[in-house]
Design a protein around this nucleic acid. Structure first.
Lengths: 209, 209
DNA sequence: CACTGTAGTAATCGACTGATAACATGTCAA
DNA sequence: TTGACATGTTATCAGTCGATTACTACAGTG
């Protein structure tokens, strides 16, 4: 959770009232967490509202429709990732791919951020949502190619690994870690250093979003 | 479409009545196409029924619940993919990865099959469905490791590329091919030989599933 | 203090959807 | 032919969900 969101939540606890701009940010953070834990259609505006501590109609009124809220969540997630990539850019070229990869898995710390990006890659069928997802993905590609200067082959591999991470997270392969033979193998072989990061940030029983 | 399904559809056109087993297969094929075009929650049993040419309650009765139908669709898709992999196994070892890759993209020819697999990688949050998806993915991994004999690194790369294909398909990047700069670049650079295959099998306006 | 705009809720509605029940029709063996 | 089972359909329900409406409360300003 970013410091800003923490501030917002604190001020909410004090007053119970918030500026619309702050409330928007808070709801967007809650929506990211909830949307990330289910599919777009599978999450209700009421769940998001309860996660944000407001009423369901208020969520709808602030964003117009559920779809507009979701689109803003996706857009924010891609923007956020692009920021992290930019932050990882400075430094020696030989470690750049490692730094960029770490920037991606680091997003696991913001609940829902990475699952939302992963989920958006399956929303191409919805016209408006799909366009936002394609634009976001395209922007990432452009960044890696042009700003990071990756050649074709490296770019392809970089994104491929990213999509594998998406699948591992989306499948909740970590649920089977230690019990399922194949899942344990996949995680140990592919992401030995990221396992703890992944496991620490899965939805918990008391916070099922 | 497999020859078997074609036979089934033909016999349906003749009699209007079908054995329950054949009808199951037909509905499963239709469900694969429809589920593949949307999310699990986003598709209705009525759409599937209309795609299969039967009434909505009959779909539910044949499979118990929508979830059980979806689970069977996923299971079938993973089984089908595993079959294709097995079929691609014989031959010189140096071309094995190419043959297995072609087996995967070849599944694009069966409408919905590949999107269903892609979509299942984001269903880990649903307990029962997620378990089926994890099992399916684990079985694929086991096959590539043990039966195909891929070493760790190659296995990882193979699946990573597969997940990138899933993302490209799920995003419908092909919709922007020729118009969107980044989409064109991604497709040209990553899958120059698969573009035609992908484009040919996207949902069409008259068959929006 | 009164006024005004902003933040927020309670109540409710209409549409959708998965599921159920009751009924209909076809097929086949004795 | 007739009974019995398998293949379907029509009608309908109960729950869910996004959205709308009408209302409330608070904060700052003159």
């Amino acid at each position: 959770m970013t410091p800003e969101v923490a501030d917002v939540l604190e001020s909410a606890a004090q007053s119970g009232r918030m500026s619309a701009a702050d409330r928007r940010e808070q709801i967007l953070a809650a929506a990211t967490a909830v949307f990330g834990s289910k599919t777009y259609v599978g999450t209700t505006t009421d769940e998001i509202a309860r996660a944000a501590g407001v009423s369901q109609p208020y969520v709808v009124r602030l964003f117009g429709t559920k779809q507009k809220l979701y689109i803003e969540v996706i857009r924010r997630a891609y923007d956020r990732l692009l920021d992290e990539f930019r932050r990882a850019l400075p430094g020696p070229p030989e470690g750049l791919d490692k730094r960029l990869g770490a920037a991606y898995t680091g997003l696991l710390a913001e609940r829902g951020m990475l699952p939302v990006i992963a989920g958006s890659t399956q929303m191409g069928g919805e016209p408006e949502i799909g366009q936002v997802a394609r634009d976001g993905f395209g922007a990432l590609w452009h960044f890696i190619r042009v700003e990071a200067g990756f050649p074709t082959e490296e770019t392809r591999t970089f994104f491929a690994i990213g999509m594998l991470i998406n699948a591992v997270v989306g499948l909740r392969l970590t649920d089977d870690y230690g019990t399922g033979v194949n899942a344990t193998e996949v995680l140990d072989e592919c992401f030995p250093d990221a396992i703890e990061k992944v496991r620490a940030l899965l939805p918990t029983a008391d916070e099922p979003w």
